[in-house]
Design a protein around this nucleic acid. Structure first.
Length: 828
RNA sequence: GCCGAAGUGGCGGAAUGGCAGACGCGACGGUCUCAAAAACCGUUGGGCCGCAAGGCUCAUGUGGGUUCGACUCCCACCUUCGGCACCA
């Protein structure tokens, strides 16, 4: 087939790179052969690579390709390193868009959802990724959500799920409650509608039980960015809970507790503030103050959350007429109610220390309340304060504590408080329990039956799944059809058999995606969510990839789920995903996040049709660092296509070869081959896909130049270059790599080959260019053999006509020599 | 306000403290063509000198510092992006 000494067939159209033909052919072959099916019995070490599953929105967009193509390359790379790689794919299929589409078209959400699954699976397949489709999971299918319901029952059994009445976020447009995590800037995460508070009885998971452990990231390699976002969200504060005496006629409660991070300022308390929603407000308010307080509380209730959250606005508040006693000094201080105190944080009440807290300071100034400094701060001259004082100095006005330095103050006061029974040291977290009820139909029904006699009774595991009705009728009430579906509602109490009523709320879709990685390992098991043996073999996930927009939602929930599963004896590890890489977000051309409502979603189909999947994959990898993201712009894609065309031409074309094992051209060729293998290996290991593509381009350019120079090289070295090219292309551009491998006469498949090793000796240069600087400025570049001794280099440098003028007549102070890089002559 | 990341050509971006701008897009010039597209070849940070080969010089957000040498390390500031935010 190869003809020793012909020149290349430049414009032979039959030999041109035609991606579409190649890609459809190989995709069919791979599927027919089951090339990407992962066996549970494979003895090789396992590697579980996972990329976040897409929501069934309708079409795959550029963002999906951007997230998945590099993940696929990384998974394939692992496979070529001898790992038994599990790289599954599925669909997050419950949620509101399906329901909204159903209301609009008058069809069942399942229709819309499963049609989207079909379409998106096809689109995903066009990517040529190594997904094992035999393990696909769809969270909205009964054989999946049966197990979501099972998880709910386990959590309930272990007191990690509970129902309570609480003020919860409500989205008036979506007509459902939301978890705290799903409220962004006071708006619904899904639809951007301003949310409101409602008092409702809802199901919660006790994620707060794990607040402290969730702060520990030491058992995995996650980015500092995500860790800090989660830490922020959990919001740990160390301080103390202090009691204040309450003595109001007709009020049973004799104390109010506050959380403070500054118990050491307790002698500076000059007033006390409770949130307008605080249950005691109504009770303690004196008759004279009643009208004013009621008006204030009502106004606060009516105000939008966005207005209330603003930090800029002036402090407001009303005196309740009541007083509390500071147990430390027996002082009575007035109790105010003000909306700068949040009912959801701490105890909903604060001890106000205007001298040492800026918010209390502003409030005191506005309402003419006393300000008593309790630290002799070094910056304070004893005059009237213009702002609250920070940490520093030692205690004053603090009875027995006067003179205690700042560093010891908190510990001393807490110790005293505990001895006297005034309070105790404690830790407070900002995170709230996870609200998982949704008043929507397209979700997994919460498996509970309400009975007149027995209350909320869990559905027995043997009765799972609680199926969604397939004849849901959508009325324009905004309410879930489950609430008026007689067939669904009617149920017998599992305890007494009397007629009961089913829970009509469904599970938050984030609960369904909190454990999907566990289902992939055993997706067809109908006895258990997954077998223990397979869990032991595959879990946890070794490498997870996905967007950082899930930092305090999915990525926090799945960690909680794993810890709960561990404590319930279901799994034996602490963290769901050992390594996490967050790719950046690909934005629309307008620089905005791609979303259907903005109309800036770009479908990749056109580009894939035009250039091929390989080109598109490589282009997305080439754009820049993967964690960078940025606006999508297709203008550079032709360059990547041109590159793959050149690869095609140079690898399939003919070359003048012979036996020339030791010519400079052959040595140079080997050097390029081994250098490129080295670089591509390193870059794939570190997820530096952009520089990997650049290195492959440079290698290609060298081969093209070499071929066009007409030089003859060693046949073995050329062969090695061709085969190496196919192998190192395989993870990123799997189709062309397979085709080239096949055309080189190698056995199917390139994707089951071992990653090529590189020879450092062959990769090493035998001559290097060394920069010669005088006082840090480059004056000359010299070619020298590798590891040339300093004196040889120095002699040549001094002799150089471009160096001499800068050195002549000057005193040489110092000479710095960095082997194989540069020589810097310092003169005076 | 607090936490995190980042500022490099017209654009995307590259550079273990050691030759700034790899690789690619775009632009310009050329080959092929009746012509255009495609493809291929060449040039391409700014300024200055030179017919030319080439040389000089400025340049990595701003200002300082450390160093023989700074895109890289340190300090301050500015800007952008992401997160949290009246969290006691």
């Amino acid at each position: 087939m190869t003809n020793e000494t012909t020149t290349r067939p430049r414009t032979d159209s039959a030999a041109r790179y035609s991606p579409r033909e190649i890609e459809t052919r190989w995709q069919a072959r791979w599927e027919a052969d089951g090339l990407y099916l992962t066996s549970d019995d494979d003895p090789r070490p396992k590697w579980y690579a996972l990329t976040m599953l897409p929501y069934t929105s309708g079409d795959l967009h550029v963002g999906h390709w951007y997230a998945m193509a590099p993940s696929d390359a990384a998974a394939r790379f692992k496979r070529m390193h001898g790992y038994n790689v599990l790289f599954p794919m599925g669909f997050d299929a419950f949620g509101l868009p399906a329901e909204n589409a159903a209301i609009k078209n008058g069809r069942h959400p399942a229709e819309w959802t499963f049609a989207n699954v079909e379409r998106m699976r096809g689109q995903l397949k066009s990517m040529g990724a190594m997904f094992d489709w035999s393990r696909e999971v769809v969270t909205a299918s009964p054989d999946y959500y049966k197990w979501s319901q099972w998880w709910f029952l386990q959590l309930l059994k272990h007191d990690l799920a509970y129902k309570k009445r609480a003020a919860v976020w409500w989205c008036p447009k979506d007509q459902t409650v939301l978890a705290n995590e799903q409220v962004l800037d006071g708006k619904c995460e899904r639809c951007d509608t301003v949310v409101m508070k409602r008092d409702l009885e809802q199901w919660f998971f006790r994620i707060t039980n794990y607040a402290e452990e969730l702060l520990d990231f030491s058992k995995m390699q996650w980015s500092e960015q995500i860790a800090s976002m989660q830490r922020n969200w959990i919001g740990k504060s160390v301080g103390a809970e202090l009691r204040f005496g309450l003595d109001v006629q007709g009020v049973e409660t004799k104390e109010i507790r506050v959380f403070t991070t500054r118990p050491d300022t307790v002698y500076g308390v000059t007033f006390f503030v409770v949130a307008p929603e605080h249950p005691l407000v109504e009770q303690i308010t004196t008759p004279e103050q009643r009208d004013a307080v009621r008006a204030y509380v009502d106004a606060a209730r009516r105000e939008s959350e966005i207005d209330r959250m603003s930090t800029e606005r002036e402090k407001t508040g009303v005196f309740t007429g009541a007083y509390v006693t500071n147990l430390f000094n027996g002082e009575q201080v007035p109790v105010w109610t003000a909306d700068y105190v949040l009912s959801t944080y701490g105890t909903g009440a604060v001890m106000a220390v205007p001298a040492h807290d800026q918010r209390d300071f502003e409030f005191a100034k506005k309402f003419g309340l006393k300000i008593v400094p309790v630290f002799q701060h070094p910056d304070w001259d004893g005059g009237e304060l213009t702002a609250a004082l920070g940490h520093g100095g030692s205690m004053i006005n603090s009875g027995p504590f006067d003179g205690t330095p700042d560093e010891q103050a908190i510990a001393a006061v807490v110790k005293y408080a505990e001895e006297q029974g005034y309070g105790r040291g404690t830790v407070n977290y900002r995170i709230r329990d996870w609200l998982i009820s949704r008043q929507r139909m397209w979700g997994a029904p919460i498996p509970i039956i309400y009975c007149e006699t027995h209350g909320a009774v869990p559905v027995p595991e043997s009765d799972l799944p609680v199926l969604l009705p397939d004849d849901a009728e959508f009325r324009p009430t905004g309410e879930s059809p489950l609430t008026y579906h007689e067939g669904f509602l009617r149920a017998k109490c599992p305890t007494c058999g009397e007629p009961g009523r089913r829970e009509t709320d469904t599970l938050d879709t984030f609960m369904c995606s909190s454990w999907y990685q566990m289902r992939y390992i055993d997706p067809h098991n109908d006895e258990r969510p997954f077998s223990r043996e397979l869990a032991k073999k595959w879990l946890p996930v070794d490498q997870y990839t996905g967007g950082s927009e899930h930092a305090v939602m999915h990525l926090l929930y799945t960690r909680f789920f794993t810890k709960a599963a561990r404590d319930m004896g279901i799994v034996a590890f602490d963290e769901p995903m050992l390594r996490l890489f967050n790719q950046g977000q690909i934005l629309g051309p307008d620089g905005q996040r791609m979303s259907k409502s903005r109309g800036n979603v770009i479908a990749p189909d056109g580009e894939v049709e035009k250039w091929g999947a390989d080109t598109f994959r490589a282009y997305l990898m080439f754009l820049g660092p993967w964690d960078g993201g940025g606006p999508y712009d297709a203008s550079g894609i032709s360059g990547v296509y041109r590159w793959l065309s050149r690869v095609w031409t140079v690898v399939t074309g003919e070359m003048r070869t012979g036996a020339h094992a030791d010519t400079p051209e052959t040595r140079e060729l080997r050097r390029w081959t081994h250098k490129t293998i080295t670089k591509v290996t390193d870059d794939l290991t570190e997820f530096r896909f952009n520089t990997m593509v650049a290195a492959l381009m440079e290698f290609t350019n060298h081969l093209v130049r070499l071929r066009e120079s007409g030089a003859e090289v060693d046949a073995g070295a050329w062969r090695e270059a061709q085969e190496s090219m196919a192998l190192i292309l395989a993870p990123s551009v799997p189709h062309i790599a397979e085709e080239l491998w096949s055309r080189l006469g190698k056995p199917y498949s390139v994707h089951t080959q071992t990653w090529p090793s590189f020879d450092a000796e062959l990769a090493a240069d035998d001559a290097v260019e060394i920069a010669v600087q005088v006082n840090g400025k480059v004056r000359e570049r010299l070619m020298l053999p590798v590891d040339a001794p300093e004196d040889v280099l120095r002699a040549q440098a001094m002799a150089s006509a471009s160096v001499a003028p800068y050195v002549e007549g000057k005193e040489i102070v110092r000479v710095i020599y960095v082997p194989n890089r540069l020589l810097n002559i310092v003169v005076r």
